[in-house]
Design a protein around this nucleic acid. Structure first.
Lengths: 196, 196
DNA sequence: CGAGAAATGTGAGCGGTGCATACATCAGGG
DNA sequence: CCCTGATGTATGCACCGCTCACATTTCTCG
């Protein structure tokens, strides 16, 4: 385990520093501003140093995306650990959309680029999200076709996030977003009986 | 109105040629391969010539995206001009997702980059999609809250497209995709009564 | 018709980027 | 105590977006 900053040549934990720098650049300059060189500059290191820790640019953003999945999962469970009613489900949906709007560049990095299916870090992280959604559906709509309803819930919420992100829906105020998301979720599912 | 290829110096209709070249590059090399220089090369023109027709790279992809919206609208209406039942709605949803999977780079260009809200070409195109969805919802679920249900429908279908595109759902065979999309749409809405 | 204006295409060039290669420096185990 | 592997550096290539000065063509209008 590396020491934090021995003083000179060796950085200490460059990988973590790169991830942090990448996150900052993502927030500041948007997705296009995320370059390996900029990350290296911010980490105070030569331009090629990050290649010791990331095979290429794609590997770097995949790592950042993986962090994002974990954060998203945390945000969702914080919104409600185990939703059991359509209203609680709507609250989680609002949290999902808010996550996307709060960290737009991160969210895009997580979903807007083709995901290397061989990246098991990302695969594991998305599996966690899937599992979480599955549990929610089981709680809110027991008895209903769980597979189809799970994908429907995830897709609905994911689509709401993207449409807001792209300005296809009114995202001027957080309240408007919450209202729209809640209304859409309830319109889609509130009428769905617990047994279909 | 420009003549097609006078013979030499002037191209004739470089703008259209650039759009065509961009579409081809998008299909062949994915989104990252779309560079103004590559477009110019393919159009058989100097690297800076496209700047006479597009302010910058972003303007070029916006123009391509606008074409994409029109194509998407055509694909949807071809799937069903005026769906009136959940099953017909599901058919349209399948067409939407298939469009995304058939032209992944185009679809990403349409949605995966922040959309300049000042671009009225794009705004108009998305307004058309919104209008179309609105009409569908009115046909399938008369009496239900049209605004909320419209956004729910669009978001659900849009989310299904993105999740398939990112490998979050099984997209190995077209049949599997159709089945999943249909099941998800029916699970979400088939149970929704025409009056809520 | 014919000249000037406007549109369109060319070329060189600047700063930035991803990435490969060869080299420098350090940390730790035989 | 040295030497081996891990880590960071320096250099360089090809490409990119974009700007600017210039060439060529077409349009417009007296």
């Amino acid at each position: 385990m590396p020491q934090p900053t021995t003083g000179s040549y060796h950085h200490g934990d460059l990988r973590a520093a790169c991830l942090r720098a990448a996150r900052e650049l993502l927030e500041e300059d948007g997705g296009s501003g995320l370059s390996l060189r900029a990350v290296a500059r911010r980490a105070g290191v030569s331009a090629t140093a990050p290649y010791r820790h990331f095979a290429d640019r794609e590997a770097l953003v995949s790592a950042v995306a993986s962090e994002g999945y974990l954060e998203l999962a945390a945000v969702l469970t914080a919104a409600h650990p185990a939703p059991a009613t359509p209203d609680e489900l709507a609250a989680v949906a609002v949290a999902y959309v808010r996550f996307a709007l709060d960290r737009p560049a991160l969210f895009r990095a997580m979903f807007a680029e083709p995901c290397d299916p061989a990246n098991e870090e990302r695969a594991a992280a998305t599996a966690a999200v899937r599992q979480y959604v599955h549990g929610i559906v089981h709680g809110v709509f027991p008895g209903a076709a769980p597979e189809a309803l799970s994908t429907a819930v995830w897709a609905l919420v994911h689509g709401l996030a993207f449409l807001h992100l792209d300005g296809k829906l009114d995202a001027t105020s957080p309240e408007a977003v919450s209202a729209q998301v809640t209304a859409a979720v309830l319109a889609a599912f509130a009428v769905a009986p617990t047994k279909a």
